[in-house]
Design a binder for these strands. Structure first.
Length: 205
DNA sequence: AGTGCGATTGACT
DNA sequence: GTCAATCGCACTA
């Protein structure tokens, strides 16, 4: 447990969450994801996000509401969890107002609490690799479709909390692993943070 | 009812 | 660096 972060783990206030998807993606950098498991509390600082905005051809809500993506249409601050490539779960935070389908993908965490639990869930030891990537962080926190639709603004199995310390410089760049609308700079990350996934070149502050 | 495809990862050359 | 695994789901018919 590092000094300076929110030991109470009080949930973020929904009223304070930016409604706009891109603004929310930036806002969530430096915040804490808290997961309550039978074995104990697991948490990590968000160091990388991606915005999937309204009208975004790369977004799952692009063609309207379906059984899979309905949580994207919830009021901002709810979890949208889906299975990618049949192998990895992805954690997103719904954005905008109820009925608007958009969200923010959480791509990487800096592990804070419950590191031994994460190491067990991931089957590896190395701190840097525990939650460096969207599928990895979901595995480390035991997140799956059962958490789809969870209110992240109240304590429960999964929620978002504030960090005591100010985040460092935030970089912005291209989203990873998409083919449509790939030219938009909708990825945000903490500069000089070793827990960020992917390449940092061709990005700007 | 059948088909194609990922907002990835880990193993391997 | 390359590449297969794996499956729920959206799309076509």
């Amino acid at each position: 447990m590092k000094p300076g972060h929110n030991k109470d783990g009080l949930p973020l206030s929904r009223a304070r969450l930016p409604v706009d998807t891109t603004a929310l993606a930036r806002y969530l950098i430096g915040k804490i994801v808290v997961r309550k498991l039978p074995e104990g509390i697991v948490s990590g600082r968000i160091v990388e996000t991606e915005a999937y905005i309204v009208g975004d051809a790369a977004g799952h809500a692009y063609r309207g509401m379906t059984p899979r993506n309905r949580a994207l249409f919830l009021e901002r601050g709810h979890a949208y969890v889906y299975l990618a490539y049949g192998t990895s779960y992805m954690l997103n935070v719904s954005s905008e107002t109820a009925g608007i389908g958009a969200g923010v993908l959480i791509r990487a965490l800096e592990p804070l609490e419950g590191i031994p639990i994460m190491q067990h869930n991931r089957g590896i030891e190395r701190l840097r690799d525990l939650a460096r990537g969207p599928g990895k962080l979901a595995a480390a926190l035991k997140i799956d479709r059962r958490l789809d639709g969870t209110d992240l603004c109240q304590k429960g199995p999964l929620w978002l909390a504030r960090d005591g310390q100010k985040p460092g410089d935030i970089g912005q760049g291209l989203r990873i692993g998409i083919s449509k609308d790939a030219e938009r700079p909708l990825r945000f990350f903490l500069y000089d943070n070793p827990f960020v996934s992917g390449l940092r070149s061709l990005n700007s502050r």
